[in-house]
Amino acid sequence: MAIKITEECINCGACEPECPNNAIYEGGVEWAIADGTTVKGSYTLIDGSQVDAAAKQSPLSMDTYYITPNKCTECQGFHEEPQCASVCPVDCCVPDDMYQETVDDLMARKDRLHS
Rank of each mutant, 00 (worst) to 15 (best):
residue 40 K to N: 15
residue 66 Y to P: 02
residue 2 A to T: 12
residue 8 E to W: 04
residue 22 N to Q: 13
residue 109 R to N: 00
residue 11 N to I: 13
residue 113 L to D: 00
residue 108 A to W: 01
residue 22 N to P: 04
residue 15 C to E: 04
residue 90 V to D: 03
residue 107 M to R: 12
residue 62 M to Q: 12
residue 33 I to K: 00
residue 20 P to G: 04
residue 112 R to H: 04
residue 89 P to M: 03
residue 111 D to T: 11
residue 20 P to E: 05
residue 115 S to Q: 11
residue 65 Y to I: 04
residue 99 Y to Q: 03
residue 89 P to I: 02
residue 31 W to F: 10
residue 80 E to P: 03
residue 63 D to W: 10
residue 39 V to M: 03
residue 1 M to P: 07
residue 6 T to I: 09
residue 55 A to C: 06
residue 52 D to H: 08
residue 66 Y to I: 05
residue 74 E to D: 12
residue 23 A to V: 11
residue 28 G to P: 04
residue 89 P to L: 02
residue 74 E to R: 13
residue 78 F to P: 11
residue 33 I to D: 00
residue 97 D to P: 13
residue 105 D to S: 01
residue 8 E to A: 14
residue 99 Y to T: 05
residue 53 A to K: 02
residue 110 K to N: 05
residue 109 R to E: 00
residue 18 E to C: 09
residue 94 V to F: 07
residue 17 P to R: 05
residue 87 V to M: 10
residue 73 T to R: 02
residue 55 A to V: 06
residue 55 A to M: 06
residue 32 A to L: 12
residue 97 D to I: 07
residue 34 A to E: 06
residue 34 A to V: 00
residue 56 K to R: 14
residue 31 W to E: 09
residue 19 C to D: 03
residue 109 R to V: 00
residue 41 G to H: 11
residue 49 S to Y: 03
residue 31 W to G: 04
residue 16 E to Q: 14
residue 45 L to S: 09
residue 113 L to E: 00
residue 47 D to F: 08
residue 43 Y to G: 03
residue 2 A to C: 05
residue 104 D to Y: 06
residue 24 I to C: 12
residue 89 P to N: 01
residue 102 T to P: 00
residue 78 F to H: 15
residue 58 S to P: 14
residue 34 A to Q: 07
residue 111 D to N: 12
residue 54 A to T: 15
residue 32 A to R: 15
residue 53 A to H: 11
residue 59 P to I: 07
residue 10 I to R: 06
residue 94 V to E: 10
residue 64 T to W: 05
residue 84 C to W: 01
residue 57 Q to L: 08
residue 40 K to T: 15
residue 79 H to N: 15
residue 86 S to C: 01
residue 85 A to L: 02
residue 80 E to T: 14
residue 85 A to M: 03
residue 50 Q to G: 11
residue 41 G to S: 13
residue 29 V to Y: 10
residue 75 C to P: 01
residue 101 E to R: 14
residue 53 A to Y: 05
residue 78 F to G: 09
residue 4 K to R: 15
residue 75 C to K: 00
residue 101 E to C: 05
residue 6 T to E: 11
residue 13 G to V: 08
residue 8 E to N: 12
residue 108 A to N: 11
residue 107 M to W: 01
residue 9 C to Y: 10
residue 38 T to N: 15
